[in-house]
Design a protein around this nucleic acid. Structure first.
Length: 423
RNA sequence: AGAGAGGUGUCCGAGUGGUUGAAGGAGCACGCCUGGAAAGCGUGUAUACCCGUGAGGGUAUCGAGGGUUCGAAUCCCUUCCUCUCUGCCA
């Protein structure tokens, strides 16, 4: 959530940022926000003054009562009725205004970093770099959805029976590959200084608001309605919310957490070849890295995280490219996002396997995640996260890119985790 | 799930209607003392918002939300959480 003061002090920057995101009626909305905030302040001042008066009268009554001057106390009491009525009115309009203001602020996305290109859709994303060479496969190459059948390692039909479409069942070496990847990713993160956490995969509403899934995006999450809990779409939600309502010490920066969780997405929308096989699922596994850092450091951290993720892809020997997302394609809460895409050689497509984002203080503001600086002032921290990595498409590209006449070669780094080198 | 107990500041802990933002202690910070340290002494030690150039002032916050009252940490209701016993269960 944007700070009203940010909007006030950097009106033009905010306005420009919103237009980069193709946000409609930005200027009107921003003026409304400022106007509401002004009204909020006025109302609070008025209310506080009356409340102070009322408090003084109460104190007076208390004093008189102790001195045993009952009649005088009774006399003063009558004065309070009117004040109380006024307070009630102001109180009501104060909370109405506050609520309105909040709702308005909830509609405003984060302001893109200056390096974010303008643009409407994925086509306008900027390719930052490409790495690795695209493997040449024989004519007989198979897409992963055929490979998994051939080797009987992932079964979608079984998943349909148990849950529904988009809930695959991993079997035998397929299941081992999943487990190997998870362990590999966690171990790598640990080596890079991340602390592993195992959070709940159901979260309450507050957590959804904290990281920005709520309001508005409840449709993307599975909900356990009886308990008002949501299945997480990403470990970002529980892990970042670990720091909700927390004031951390500046010395504790950077805070680096990593967690493996299943992720659940309803993803109502598109069908077809692009979502075939492992390309898009309702349940998938992901290892997520999350950092909480000093505002001065967040862009350096973002680069670090991007490099870290790229390192993983290199170790897995997958050709990849890095995109800087344009304003139109970036997530609501992000200031700057890099997407990592691997090339899946049988589909002949780039598949997104990681998204690394700096949220600056947008999430921290909602989370009330702050730190005490050297000047003793509390201020909002910056949060970042990134997939490191999401499994299904990694699996897809490993299977496709490494297929040979006599099996699928596994990346060397995984062999110790797998206990085999070929499927 | 049933019965009971309880949730107070960084922590422990007092407080059952009237200067209580909250006694006391611990911790922490600073200062004094010391050759240095410990002990001791002194001072300070929440968050948010509002007013004010500033010093400073105001309002709210004792799990959360509502209510009673001139006045609530204290009374009532709802709700969440923790602990103990019983039940159930991986």
């Amino acid at each position: 959530m944007l700070l009203v003061n940010t909007i006030r002090d950097n009106f033009d920057v905010v306005l420009e940022g919103l237009s980069k995101r193709n946000f409609q009626q930005a200027e009107i909305t921003l003026h409304q926000v400022i106007e509401l905030d002004n009204k909020r302040k006025e109302t609070q001042t008025e209310r506080d003054n009356l409340q102070a008066e009322s408090n003084n009268i109460s104190k007076e009554i208390g004093m008189l009562m102790r001195e045993g001057k009952k009649e005088e106390a009774e006399k003063i009491k009558s004065r309070t009725a009117e004040i109380k009525a006024q307070i009630k009115v102001l109180e009501d309009s104060f909370s109405t205004i506050e609520e309105e203001l909040k709702q308005k602020l909830y509609t405003l996305p984060n302001i893109p970093h200056s390096s974010v290109p303008a643009g409407k859709s994925a086509e306008d994303n900027e390719i930052v770099l490409e790495h690795g060479s695209i493997p040449e496969l024989p004519e007989s190459k198979m897409a992963h959805w055929d490979l998994i059948k051939k080797y009987d390692i992932i079964d979608f039909d079984l998943g349909v029976k148990i849950a529904g479409a988009g809930f695959p069942v991993y079997k035998g070496k397929g299941a081992r590959l999943q487990r190997a990847l998870i362990n590999f990713f966690l171990d790598e993160a640990m080596k890079a200084g991340y602390t592993e956490v195992q959070p709940p995969i159901l979260v309450n509403e507050e957590s959804g608001y904290g990281t920005g899934q709520l309001p508005d995006k409840e449709g993307q999450m599975y909900e356990a309605t009886a308990d008002k809990l949501f299945l997480i779409p990403t470990a970002e939600v529980p892990i970042t919310n670990l720091y909700r309502d927390v004031i951390v010490n500046e010395q504790d920066f950077p805070i680096k957490n990593v967690g493996y969780t299943p992720c659940f997405r309803r993803e109502a929308g598109s069908w077809g070849a692009h979502v075939r096989g492992l390309n898009r699922l309702h349940q998938f596994d992901k290892v997520e890295i999350v950092q909480v850092v000093h505002p001065d450091q967040s862009y350096i951290t973002l680069e670090d995280m991007s490099k870290y993720v790229q390192g993983l892809l290199q170790k897995l020997e997958l050709p990849y490219r890095v995109l800087r997302l344009c304003g139109g394609d970036m997530g609501f809460t992000s200031s700057l996002t890099y997407d990592m895409e691997v090339y899946s050689a049988a589909q002949e497509r780039w598949l997104e396997v990681s998204s690394v984002s700096n949220f600056e203080n947008f999430q921290a503001n909602r989370l009330k995640l702050r730190f005490k600086g050297s000047d003793k002032k509390t201020q909002l921290a910056h949060t970042l996260n990134g997939s490191a990595l999401a499994l299904p498409r990694i699996v897809a590209s490993i299977l496709e890119n490494n297929q040979t006449e006599d099996g699928i070669k596994m990346p060397k780094v995984l062999v110790p985790y797998l206990g085999f080198d070929k499927i």
